[in-house]
Design a protein around this nucleic acid. Structure first.
Lengths: 207, 207
DNA sequence: CTATTGTTTGAATCTCATCTCAAAGAACTC
DNA sequence: GAGTTCTTTGAGATGAGATTCAAACAATAG
């Protein structure tokens, strides 16, 4: 007798995706600390019971939100890089810098990411996501730097890896202050300072 | 008739100080999200009622914890700077870098600070503290850089202010990853990279 | 000492979000 | 259509923590 395929295997993945999106919205609005099942349910237009049906452990849902935010952020940076003219390493590096800093204190994409990163200190899963994000951002920068060095546009002051590390860390530092409403770190100024640093380590004046 | 000075004006400030210290401990142990009045009371060795007696608004207490953490952190950096040999700008700068990075993922002083900084996005009071901390750290670095430039030990690649900004942001970026358990950012490596950056912008090989 | 006000406590109460669950509804197989 | 499983709901149980409060206690003035 065959284990027959019966019943109602609907669009679990679609529902889950909707819940992840709704949870991201709820976190953006009320913060990670004040996150309530009700908010997620409301944002998704379903009942509280449904949320629990798909995610008996809320932490799993939050982890999915983090994963989604990381992937979408990386995709948007990759896109920014790809859309800049391939023949101009400086333009591509600039595109990376622009895509890596929050545009304002209320930038919701960056805001959500920083919120979720907070959990990394206490949750290995979140730490892993943050580690992966960092490594892939470093990879993006390292590629951009190496291409520039290969074409002669850049003269690297150290290994592409190390410089890429520094750029990502610098970005993260400024980004943290921007989303934290540090009045002394205006987005435009942060952008200038990161670019100045990039200029210094690549020896490329046109940055 | 004189408004007579009667009653029991005891050591309110001492009690408050004790509560602030206890709250800092509780936050370190359980995180800002999981902070319970009971934890604070236990850490301070008093009843829950006493905590509310002094801080009807828990937020006020948390803000005091933040203020205390900022002041003590700045004092320790100032001390590190002062204790390094006054005649050696490179040594003083190195001392600043060392005091600005968490020694490990479990560094409780840095961990507490990053925890508290999280509130800055939603609370003006916390944002102000973070802004003040940043400005004063920039001041420390700027002084160190200017002294070095004045004595000829450093050749600054840009204004001391801008370079100091960059150093603090870099530190914060690495610090964030360290306390977040990003496995790719080891404290020792972060220290090396910050020093390399300092070396690059000061032109001082002995850093 | 006594009155007065500051301090502390712990138990009772309130609040609010999570968790549980039985029943209703929906899609799919046969 | 009948049977089966998946899905959704909402109301009530549960529970953790905040808040209230009256009573006990302490220190100081006079």
């Amino acid at each position: 007798m065959v284990m027959s395929r019966v019943g109602r295997p609907r669009n679990q993945t679609a529902r889950r995706q909707a819940l992840v999106s709704a949870a991201g919205q709820a976190i953006t609005e009320r913060g990670l600390e004040g996150l309530r099942i009700k908010d997620i349910a409301d944002a998704a237009g379903v009942s509280q019971g449904s949320v629990l049906y798909y995610y008996p452990e809320l932490d799993d849902l939050v982890l999915e939100v983090h994963r989604g935010a990381v992937e979408s952020f990386l995709a948007s940076r990759q896109r920014a890089y790809d859309e800049a003219p391939a023949g101009e390493p400086a333009a591509r590096l600039r595109a990376l810098v622009d895509s890596g800093l929050p545009g304002s204190a209320e930038d919701s994409e960056h805001g959500l990411l920083y919120q979720l990163h907070r959990r990394a200190g206490r949750s290995p899963g979140h730490a892993e996501l943050m580690t992966s994000l960092f490594a892939r951002e470093v990879g993006l920068y390292a590629t951009a730097l190496e291409v520039g060095a290969a074409t002669g546009a850049f003269t690297l002051a150290a290994s592409a890896q190390d410089l890429a590390h520094g750029l990502v860390a610098l970005e993260d530092g400024y980004g943290l202050h921007i989303v934290s409403h540090n009045a002394a770190v205006r987005p435009e100024r942060a952008r200038e300072l990161v670019l100045a640093h990039a200029r210094a380590v690549t020896g490329c004046p046109s940055l």
